[in-house]
Amino acid sequence: MRVTLSDRDRRFIACFEDETGATARDCLVDEEGSEDRVVFLVAAGEMGQAVGPDGRRVRSVEETLGRSVALVEDADTPEAFVANALAPAAVKHVTISEQGDRIAYAEVPEADRGAAIGRDGRNIETARRLAKRHYDIDDVQLT
């Protein structure tokens, strides 16, 4: 799918890439809730570079942008993508239903459901938005 980025999103990605040396494939700005948050979709295999030693690179991006930053690692399959988007929750298995709407069903242990959902539903909503933008998945549901 083709993702359209605003000028602000492109500026945020340029800042992220300059600070970390990692490639950002997408950027979502979450301005709801108590704090502004920017979610970067990091190229597969570049998560360690993006975070940096002891998280220094990602903290530098947070200081530069004045917002909290969350990272999601890209993946080659929609199932792996949804699992990455729900991290740090331990996702056991993801199934994509093609009957009618495309829905991703993520099997998450009860102990990790809170992490998958996130405060005020932010994590699962981010997973839904990214899955829609990159794999045309209409919904992400936990099982």
Rank of each mutant, 00 (worst) to 15 (best):
C27L: 02
A89R: 06
E63T: 12
T23N: 14
A80M: 11
T64S: 07
D112P: 00
E107M: 09
I124E: 12
E107K: 10
A50N: 06
T77H: 12
A75Q: 12
P78Y: 12
V108A: 10
A22V: 01
D18E: 15
S6I: 07
A111P: 00
D76L: 14
D138C: 10
R67C: 09
D139R: 15
G66M: 03
D112W: 06
E46N: 07
H93F: 07
A70G: 13
D18I: 10
A104Q: 05
E35H: 07
D74S: 04
G66H: 04
R119F: 01
S68L: 13
V94Y: 03
E32I: 00
V72W: 04
F16M: 08
A70F: 13
A89C: 07
V94K: 02
D7R: 15
A50D: 00
T4E: 14
V140D: 01
N84V: 01
L28W: 08
G21Y: 08
I137H: 04
V69S: 01
A80I: 02
N84L: 05
D9A: 11
G118P: 00
D74M: 05
R128G: 09
V82P: 11
T64M: 09
G52W: 00
C27F: 13
S97D: 11
T126W: 12
V82N: 09
F40T: 09
I96S: 02
F40P: 03
D120S: 06
R2W: 01
G21W: 03
D18G: 01
D30C: 05
G52S: 11
L86V: 05
S68T: 14
D30V: 12
R57E: 08
D101W: 11
R119W: 03
A44R: 14
V51M: 10
V51Y: 11
E19C: 11
R119Q: 12
R128C: 08
V91P: 00
R129L: 12
D26A: 14
D76E: 15
G114K: 07
E79K: 12
G33D: 06
G121H: 02
A87G: 07
R102L: 10
A14I: 06
E125N: 15
T64P: 00
R59F: 05
V58A: 10
I137P: 05
A43N: 13
H93T: 02
G121K: 00
Q141T: 02
D120K: 08
A44V: 11
E79Y: 04
A90K: 14
E35V: 01
L65G: 00
I13Y: 04
V91K: 06
R129A: 13
S97F: 01
C15D: 11
A106N: 09
E46T: 03
F40N: 09
Q141R: 15
T126G: 10
K132I: 01
E79Q: 13
N84A: 06
